[in-house]
Amino acid sequence: MKQEIIIAGFGGQGVLSMGKILAYSGLMEGKEVTWMPSYGPEQRGGTANVTVILSDNPISSPILNQYDVAIILNQPSLDKFESKVKPGGVLIYDGYGIHGEIRRKDINVYRIDAMDAAIEMKNDKVFNMLILGGLLKVEPMVKLENVLLGLKKSLPERRHKLLPMNEAAIKKGMEIIRKM
């Protein structure tokens, strides 16, 4: 089993850290993982993206032309990656970040209004964990217990008091994602 995932949005939306938590979750599950970020100027306000691969077998290329799952958090990322989802693959988008329509008919499209939910929870920091919850609902690639272990592993100890809040956000994300 192999999952090739792109997460793309604005710098500051928690794209890279969400990818990191997913990668750590895969590690906890005993999978092979790679985490390949865009680095440099994109990170500082422009578009940021990260490719995460989780696999039961050794991983060859960290650079891909097509993805099983694309998580799209802003319009430029939709323009860039919509065509790169494998036929039959999954595209998840945040309703707040996308204003154009999704043209592909041969993929499964899901919407998650994570920005609205984050505002409701009065905490914009959990935005990416809401999205992660949505992903896990649609594609349960790692067990929730391993995600929580991965989360713990990827956060420095002084941030461990935030774990319950992040767990709540993941569970909320699982509830609010819907198929389009």
Partner: peptide, 10 residues
């Protein structure tokens, strides 16, 4: 190179 330097793996 930048890929091997920036990439995270086990």
């Amino acid at each position: 190179d930048g890929i091997i330097g920036q990439m995270m793996e086990k």
